Amino acid sequence: QTQEFDNEEEARKAEKELRKENRRVTVTQENGRWRVTWD
């Protein structure tokens, strides 16, 4: 699953929550947008 964010702060917040659920999370930056991908 993927979700896009406008800034790193929001993306990192989402990453932190997903990691609490023991998910594999990848955060990438593309064209000024932050993308959080998880399984």
Rank of each mutant, 00 (worst) to 15 (best):
E21F: 14
V36S: 01
L18I: 04
E8R: 02
R19I: 11
Q1W: 15
Q3L: 15
T26I: 13
Q1V: 09
V36P: 01
Q3C: 13
V36T: 01
E15P: 00
R35H: 06
T37C: 10
N7K: 06
A11S: 02
A11N: 00
Q1P: 06
T28N: 05
R24E: 11
E4Q: 06
V27M: 05
R24G: 06
A11G: 01
Q1M: 13
V25M: 02
D39F: 15
T28I: 12
T37K: 08
E21I: 13
G32H: 04
R23N: 14
E21A: 13
E10F: 04
Q29N: 12
R24N: 15
K13L: 13
V25D: 00
L18H: 09
R23S: 10
Q3Y: 14
E30D: 07
K16H: 13
T26R: 09
F5I: 01
N31P: 02
F5S: 01
R19W: 13
R23K: 13
G32T: 04
R33P: 01
Q29R: 09
W34Q: 00
W34L: 00
T28L: 07
D39G: 10
E10K: 05
E8T: 01
N7A: 04
E30K: 08
W34H: 00
R24Q: 10
E9I: 11
L18V: 03
K16A: 14
E30V: 14
L18R: 05
L18A: 08
K20F: 09
Q3W: 15
E21S: 13
N7C: 08
T26F: 13
N22K: 09
E15Q: 07
Q29M: 13
A11F: 02
A11H: 00
N31V: 02
F5Q: 00
V27S: 02
E21M: 15
T28F: 10
V25N: 01
Q1H: 14
T28P: 01
T2E: 09
R19E: 08
W34K: 00
T28M: 07
D6M: 07
Q3R: 12
T2F: 15
N22M: 09
V36W: 01
N7P: 00
E15W: 09
N22W: 15
G32W: 02
D39A: 08
E4V: 15
